[in-house]
Design a binder for these strands. Structure first.
Lengths: 127, 127
DNA sequence: CTGGATCCAGCTCGATACTG
DNA sequence: CAGTATCGAGCTGGATCCAG
């Protein structure tokens, strides 16, 4: 077996199975369109719920709350509630969130650089 | 409006809308668990269909073919068929695929480094 | 071995309505 | 404004069968 494991350089001890399973879970959480777009949007700075709805084009109310909860649970975004009326809630990337943001930026950069290649490849494939 | 756009440093010309829409499409294609895991697996080198099924734990026959077609269409993997019997098909990352792989590796690295943080954050959140 | 096609249970997601 | 709850249409994805 070469890999089958997501994390490759961990010791073969008893915790390995648990760590790898956690890693897969995180991977599934994070490797989704909306989560990445939210992180990208928060990369610009703190945003409120309504601000995020504007920045992340096409996201529904439900998907936004759902993904925000997930990101908060994983410690990637910080949720700050001001007990005013009407309520005001601010979302900010945490330090680990910033780290993730760097890789999301890399993904955006890659996408940008390969737009042409991909368009060509598609044309070729569809023919 | 600050962003709303996935790609930020493109000129505001007529092609912008099209390019950004393509970028979003690519982003949705690629930002999915199975695609990333397949790319990660192919990072080790060329693999056959059955090899991929072994390397990418838990993927179904259908998801594997589906994602491979998508990756091929976008020019990220190369599909080489040997007209033998039984057939032999090899999948390899293309050059753009290699580029994407680098960012997937970064994501894996990030996951690895933040396992602890995330576990803690979850415990805190779930309480 | 690779992979297309079909079936359908289960989940996702958007719409809507309601609360503090 | 932010968030929860509910409902249902539609999509997803696994299982299975067939074919080259």
């Amino acid at each position: 077996m070469v890999t089958k494991r997501l994390l490759k350089d961990l010791p073969e001890d008893a915790d390995l199975r648990r760590a790898d399973s956690l890693a897969r879970e995180i991977f599934s959480d994070v490797a989704n369109k909306w989560a990445l777009l939210i992180i990208e949007a928060l990369g610009e700075g703190t945003l409120r719920f309504s601000g995020l709805r504007n920045e992340v084009e096409g996201i529904s109310h439900k998907m936004l709350t759902q993904n925000l909860r997930m990101l908060e649970r994983n410690g990637l975004v910080d949720r700050k509630v001001y007990p005013t009326v009407p309520p005001r809630v601010e979302y900010t990337l945490t330090e680990s969130g910033q780290g993730l943001r760097a890789t999301v930026d890399a993904l955006c950069g890659w996408t940008h650089r390969h737009l042409g290649h991909i368009e060509d490849a598609r044309r070729r494939f569809d023919a």
